[in-house]
Design a protein around this nucleic acid. Structure first.
Lengths: 251, 251
DNA sequence: TACCGCTTGTGAACGCATGCACAAAGTCGA
DNA sequence: TCGACTTTGTGCATGCGTTCACAAGCGGTA
């Protein structure tokens, strides 16, 4: 999870020392789902539900019940056999694991359309993520508050991020600016970056980057449309573009 | 090569009917990367680069070269050994596989901050995704053009989507409205949905949903911050919060 | 107290994805 | 034309993640 991301290093040596830690690590995919469970549980808590079974919760989260139980088992055994889980207890344990107890301060860089949207998200749904700083290069924006927070010039990133102890940086700039902004965030001590710019960021090993790429998402959907259309058209699924002619004699 | 793909299986079992199709399917993860390769290639083409090796392209895309070659092999053999790939050729083949040749028309529902941002994205980076319809419930927004497209009332979804042959619906509404909007999109024949609302959508089998969940992304980052902080503090990675005492001495 | 039924927690099998390593296949220079 | 060099395409092994299936454990009931 942490120390992977590409890295074509030919570490021909087999057993790494990091394996021991990994043994107790929670799979990345499971972490993502824990966040989903947390939302479902929060909703239940708000409605006064106090207990829930793996079956119910898994349906609310849109996953398989066995997977949910396994995911929860990574963080410990907090259920009661024959009964289920206490909602409050589960919420607090997931929050602890996800590190939501320490209130992460968030900085958004690039106050364009998307930046505006992010700034106004206000504390982000699921709470615990106060946006405490906004940055842009555009002089017209500086000082103007968006979502209650004034916009600062991008040159102040380092100082302000350090001062406000920003732990998560969100990049919502145009692609060409992304790497430079990223570098500045990193030098300001930010170790987690959420990148909306369609750019592959270069970062040191100790920085975690997650990417949200709208174009990629759209294109994946497009792929599925195309595949369906092909199937519907009776065209035997054909990856090589030679149409009906090229080979393909699949009985 | 393209003639056979996933035949490793001892066909002892009569085999499911769906297996045959699956044999030719491209792994989901590879599809996502193809979109990334495509962007890198487009950038190269714009700069006049005409040929590229798997090594170069893999670096631009931030992945391992072997993985890239395997991904490309799923769509056919379009490289030249000893030389590399022709940029133009690769671009056109990836575009074909991703279905970008048929211009997908996109509808955005929910013209709040995020909806605005999406509407203004204008054709989406990576082109080929014209936004042709916007919807909202707010009467104050109806008729006002955003990013050049007038906003329609949500009740018109079905009619307009059918008329404009919308193939991808983007949901950027508040959570409570999401499922209902989704249902309407589906009944309008939309088979692909990109969902920004933090809700688990219920859809028929023939509809593809992708979810972009900002809160989840943030929480995943938060998890990594927390894990790092723990490690830095010398706390042996401890998932159950009971400190050294709790459970399990798994070696 | 002892039994019964329900739900959790998890060992084990399976399947997909990743990375390696090399043969195949092409180019280029002599 | 031939040989050396370069880079692709892919079989194979490995590891992660998902799913299955069931024993363990707990509350309720007689």
């Amino acid at each position: 999870m942490a120390a992977q991301r590409g890295e074509g290093e030919t570490t021909t040596t087999p057993a790494e020392p990091a394996d021991r830690e990994r043994a107790r690590a929670i799979p990345e995919a499971a972490v993502a789902r824990l966040a989903v469970y947390l939302r479902a549980l929060s909703g239940m808590a708000d409605q006064g539900v106090t207990a829930v079974s793996s079956e119910e919760l898994s349906q609310a989260a849109g996953v398989n019940a066995a997977k949910l139980r396994k995911d929860l088992s990574y963080i410990g055994s907090y259920g009661t056999r024959g009964v289920g889980y206490d909602v409050e207890v589960l919420v607090s344990h997931i929050e602890r694991i996800l590190g939501l107890t320490r209130n992460h301060s968030v900085a958004v860089v690039g106050i364009g359309n998307l930046g505006h949207a992010l700034a106004n998200y206000g504390g982000f749904p699921g709470r615990g993520f106060p946006v405490t700083a906004l940055f842009d290069v555009d002089a017209d924006l500086i000082g103007i508050p968006v979502g209650g927070i004034p916009v600062n010039h991008i040159d102040e990133i380092t100082a302000i991020c350090l001062e406000r102890e920003v732990s998560i940086g969100v990049i919502a700039t145009p692609p060409p600016a992304a790497q430079s902004v990223c570098d500045r965030l990193v030098s300001a001590g930010v170790q987690c970056i959420l990148n909306f710019a369609p750019v592959v960021l270069q970062v040191p090993d100790n920085v975690e980057v997650r990417k949200v790429d709208l174009a990629v998402e759209m294109q994946i959907l497009s792929f599925h449309v195309a595949r369906r259309a092909d199937e519907a058209a009776g065209v035997s699924v054909d990856n090589n573009g030679l149409g009906v002619d090229g080979m393909v004699s699949r009985p």
